[in-house]
Each structure stands twice: as C-alpha cells, then as structure tokens.
Design a binder for these strands. Structure first.
Lengths: 367, 367
DNA sequence: TCCGCCTCTCGAATCGATTCGAGGTCGATG
DNA sequence: CATCGACCTCGAATCGATTCGAGAGGCGGA
C-alpha cells in the first residue's frame, strides 16, 4: 500500500492511527474533529507526501467535478482570435467565480468525427473528450453552430445544465443574447437618417461551410447562424434590397477581402457598408484606405461589437454590445442552475446594444 | 434504481439481461462480446436514455481523466489578449490531439488565496479548482511567474507530468523555450550594424507587481521573469548601458505609454528602441506617430514575437519565434510523458527565433 | 460419443474518497 | 453514584465503472 505508489487517504489514516473516515473529515475541515486529531492527520499526510484527496474519487462520490465546460464552435485558435469571444470567456470566468470551478475548453466538432484514437502502438486509446463524455457540471455554449442540435441533445440526455450565449437551443435552455436585429436596424437607420440609400452588408459566416462570396438568396435562406441572420434582417428592415458579401470568418482579413470587392468599382460602389462585426468593419476600412476611398467622405462604415480594434485609426461607428456582461450573465445562470434549491428560473436574458457614433459615418457625398 | 434518477450501466445491463461487466465491455467496444449481445446492450441503453459511462467513475477506475491542464499566469482575459499565448494554446491543442484530451484552463493565483468559497447561503462550497486539486493527467505551464515554484511543488507532490513553456521549472520538468537572449542580441546587433549607438529598451513585466516605470537596476536585479531578463541580457550584450522602461503588460497600450516617455524629449531621444514584444513595439510605433517622430527615419524599432499585429501599417523588424510550434512541442512532450512505456526522455527543446528585417529599422539620421 | 479448445459471459475485487448513523468516552449534574 | 449529554471517532455502505481470471457452452475433430 505505502509502497512506491502515491499514498491514499487510508495510508494517511493508518499512519495517523485513525480511521479513513476521520481522516477524510480532518481534510475537508468541516466535520467535528478534535484539533489534536486533525493535527495528527495533517502531520501524517505531510510525512507521507500526501497531496490531498484524489479529485477523481472525490468527484465520483460528490457527483460534482468542479468543472464548467465551454463549447466553442471552432478550433481554439479561431475562436480566440475574436476579441468578443475572449471577453465573453472572461465574463464567464467572473460569473462562475463563486463556484470555484475551472473552465474546460471543448469544441463541438463532435466525437463522432473522431470516435477513437489509434496510438502508434496500435492500442485504441480513450475516446476523445467531447461534450458527450466530459466530466463537467455544466456547460456554456458560445455561439451557435450547425451542430448545436446534436450538442444540446447530448447534454440533455446527460442531464447537464446548459446555458447558451447567442443561439436558441431550446426552451429549457437559458439563452443569453443581445438585440441583434433591432440593434442592426438602429445602425442602419442611422445611415438612412444621414441620407444613405445604397448600403451594402458584410455578414458573418452564414453556413457551416463558411462560404465566402456574394450574399445570395440561397445562402441567406440556408443560414444556420441565428446571429448573422438576425443582424441581416435588421439591416433589411431599413435597406430591403441591400446586397453584400458573406465573410468566411469574423476577421480583419475577411473584411478587407469583402471591402475590396464592394469598393472596387467607383460606379457601383455603395455609399455605406454595414459590417456585422468590428473586425470586419476594420477590414473594410483598410480596403477603403487601400483603394483611396475616403471614410466617411465617400463611404460610411458601421460595425458591430464595440471592441477596441488595436491600431485602428478611426473611431468606428458601431453597436456596442456588453460582451463581458453577457459572459458574466451566462456564468451566473450556471451558478443558479447548479444551486441546491434549484434553478427553476430559466433566466434567459437579452442585453441591449448601444449605437456609438464615431467618425466613420457621415452624409453621403452628392454624386 | 431506475427511478427518475439517471440510469447507470447496471440499469442498462439489467435491462439487457446481461451482467454489468458485459455491458461495460459492450460499451468500450474492445472486449470480446458477441454482436448480438452488444446490440442488445446498445438497444437497452437507448431505451433507457443512457448517455454512456459516467466520466467521473471511469476516470477514477482508469486513473486518467483525459484532461490536460494549462496553467496561465494571469487571468484569462489578460493572457488571451496576447496573440502569442493564443498561438501557443493552439499549438498545445494540436500537440495533444492524439490524446483526445480536453484543455482545462487554470491560473496559478493559488488556491491558498481563495481556499474556500462562501456561498450566499453561508454554505462552504468546494474549494476552488486549482493546480493542487484539478483532475488533470498532465499540465502545461505557460510562461513563468513568481508562483512557479509553488505550482511546480504541488504538481510534483501530486506526481503529475508537467511541461513548462518559457520558464525553468526544475531539472525533471521538460522545458520548451526559445533563444531569448541570443535572439535579442541578434536584433540589437542588427541595430548596431546599422550604426545605432543609443538604444533604449522596453521590457516585459519584470516583477510580480508588474511595475511600470523606468528600468532601474533594482528592478532588473529583482526580476522574476526569465524571459524578460534573458532578453534584457541579450540587448545588453550589444548596448551595455541602454536605459529603458518596464511595461506592466505585453500590450499596445503599454508600449504606447513607454514610447511616449522615451520619445518625448527630442534631445535625449534614443535612435533605436528594442521592445520585448511586438505588441509593445506596435505601441511604440503608435507613440512615434503621435509625436511626429518618423520611423525608421528618426527612430528604429525592433520587436519580438513575429505576430501579425492587426492594422499595423509597418512591416515590423522583429524576432520571429515559432509560437505554435512551441505549443505543439509542449503538447507532444505531454503525450510522450503519458505514454505507457514512459517518457524517460525529458525532451526539453529550445527553438530558434529568426530576425525578420522589416521597414522599421534603418541607419540613424546624422544629427 | 467424447474431448479439447475457443469464444463469450459473469462475479468479484478495485479505484479513493465521502457520508451518515451508531457507538464510545468523558465530564457534568441531580 | 448513576445518568444524560456533548463531543468524537469509527464502520460500512456507496458513488459508477473497469478489469481479470474463472467458468460455461458450443463446435469440430478423432
């Protein structure tokens, strides 16, 4: 028992001359244990180099692992390149702080795609950790994805409390969202009020394939992204016939790409561009600069998110959304659902974005 | 048993008319189970809505949790604002892919600082998850920190395989690093070769307090950051008497701050600035622009990292380090250490940075 | 027909800690 | 002096799955 193997609680107990149960009490600190005994146990633990109760055993017994899963819809790098995601993650961290829980990064690419892993030795290793089998007490879904349905189904089957940020996952799952549609509408209205009649849109990825290209009716109809669709609808409320481009990601690069196409031809160039994220907007601004198109003189640009894009010269007109607060709300919802008395309150929340008018929008130049 | 509670493997087994052991075999797929039986078990599971083996129980029995911990030295937001960290994280993900393991985010603020959490109800909750008690199979330390020693001690006591990225943690812990000192020296030498004699340095945080201010001897002597110290030494090999500023973080903002001070007075202004990160360098460039100091005409700037700073107009002269490869190497080291046959090979690796000469360095203007 | 072997299934032990009720000791009180 | 608590400590059951050796059938060959 006390061989070279790591000591267990019973080893410590034996050494201290008490029973395992008493040792356990001594460690968890809560139970009625005399000071003398506690000291003895702690001393024995120190002598044996006991590092504390095994978290695996503890979590089996307690039924809680102290881990909250965060499901990202993309690979880690891609997700974290988006400042909005990072802010939400940070908010989640704040929100679950009272739980003292850790954050486990998961992607919903699905275990099915990679059920087991063959090691070099030809041994079949543990199936990859996924939302189907991760030892989590609760899960926060960040951003919707085509696989959302399957992910939610697995979570429901496992009975794991779930909260979704931006993505309708089902009536029993609290959703933390913002006024995507109305906010975008307000941004578009701002452009209309300035006198714009010809606005183009740069959308977030619409389909699972993240198709980059012109914004076609087919693409729009087949959208699997609530966020992109809602923002699109909001824009269409003001500019029903707006055309545009669909980006393959929310990044400056993609915005640049889209901007180049939209601004290329001075004859057909729109007087305003509504980008569905600040990163895309920043790319559009860069494209404008590249092509020598003045902002806001010749083209106005509106973004979405309200992040500080490092190094951006402009004060972007955008819809400022409370990303950190969203994350925090999600975290708090998790805490509530995990509380003993129970989270009867689904506690969905919809935050409001604020239109920040910067220096990238102005009346269109008479042509 | 099969009440409202979630079904267990034995429930499934009972329903399928087999023993629990057989059911287990059927699920793990590996054992010699007849197809008929397997189908029966799977069917029973489906009927009962069994979601697969409980990961907590499984990890207790198997002794593996399938989770790899990543220890960050700061809060999540701060860490992930640094593109280098994100790249490394991504590399780690790639590296441990064969494990099929998940990534658990941990910070080394220490459980001691927040041993237990009082809930609103006055109930004492589970101690916060930390490196001391997280159910991880291995850990990757990202960046060194003052608390490194304690973190490593806890890990060692627990017998958890550990790999450190940038930070000497002990002889038994593989370290993945880069040639901080020599790389910086080469960057500095490049400046010297161009004719610079008066270079200033902007360092990464040196002490636990992340003091922002002039680079004093005391600060240097008390440095707890290997990375910053090494890069500083490299610079000093070429410019022994260089003065500078210490930043409170690796960010554009901090670089801007430092740049403003260093470039404020045209009389004492250095002809070159060596920044210990690209983010800091970008800030310095911004400061230069603000103050109307031409780059590289009036001041040359060298960075470190080789990240693409979004929106940066310049092609920064910098030392390109392979961040993703570093992460991947760390992940691979973890895989090796976790392999059955055993990772006798500590497998420390030191990568080499490459000097990329952009357009931010040029000979000093004769004054 | 009988034997041996091979394939599939089962029992029981185990992973390490937690929890709860039972029991034991000791001091104080009537 | 006997009894009642109060306060500790202990035993045993439990969390849910995995694993390994043993045993039971079935089938082909002699």
């Amino acid at each position: 028992m006390s061989e070279s193997a790591r000591p267990t609680l019973s080893d410590v107990a034996a050494r201290a001359g008490v029973s395992a149960s008493t040792a356990s009490l001594a460690f968890s600190g809560s139970g009625p244990v005399s000071d003398a005994t506690k000291q003895r146990v702690l001393a024995a633990a120190a002598e044996l180099g006991y590092a504390g109760p095994d978290p695996r055993a503890r979590s089996l017994r307690r039924g809680r692992s102290g881990i909250v899963g965060v499901v990202l819809e993309q690979r880690v790098r891609t997700a974290f390149l988006d400042p909005v995601k990072i802010q939400m993650l940070d908010g989640i961290t704040e929100g679950i702080a009272p739980l003292g829980a850790g954050l486990l990064l998961l992607t919903d690419v699905g275990a099915a795609d990679l059920p087991v892993v063959d090691t070099a030795d030809g041994i079949v290793a543990t199936p990859a950790l996924s939302v189907e089998n991760a030892p989590v007490d609760a899960v926060v879904l960040v951003g919707c994805s085509p696989r959302l349905g399957q992910t939610v189904a697995a979570l429901r089957r496992r009975g794991i409390p779930t909260v979704a940020i931006e993505g309708a996952a089902g009536s029993d799952i609290p959703e933390i969202s913002i006024d995507n549609r109305d906010a975008t509408r307000r941004g578009a209205q701002h452009l209309r009020d300035l006198g714009h009649a010809d606005a183009a849109i740069v959308t977030l990825p619409l389909d699972p394939a993240r198709t980059r290209g012109p914004l076609t009716a087919a693409l729009e109809a087949g959208s699997t992204s609530d966020t992109a669709s809602e923002r699109l609808r909001g824009a269409r409320e003001v500019f029903p016939n707006a055309t545009g481009r669909s980006a393959a990601a929310s990044s400056i690069e993609e915005g640049l790409e889209a901007g180049r196409v939209l601004l290329a031809d001075p004859a057909t160039r729109p007087t305003a561009i509504i980008a569905q994220s600040d990163l895309l907007a920043a790319g559009v601004l860069q494209a404008a600069e590249e092509l020598g198109v003045a902002v806001p003189g010749e083209v106005s640009v509106v973004g979405f998110d309200g992040i500080r894009v490092d190094g951006l010269q402009h004060d972007l007109t955008t819809l400022v959304q409370p990303s950190v607060a969203k994350g925090r709300a999600a975290g708090e919802a998790v805490v509530r659902m995990l509380a003993e008395d129970g989270g009867d309150a689904p506690a969905s929340r919809c935050f409001t974005s604020v239109l920040h008018i910067g220096d990238t929008t102005a009346p269109p130049r008479a042509r």
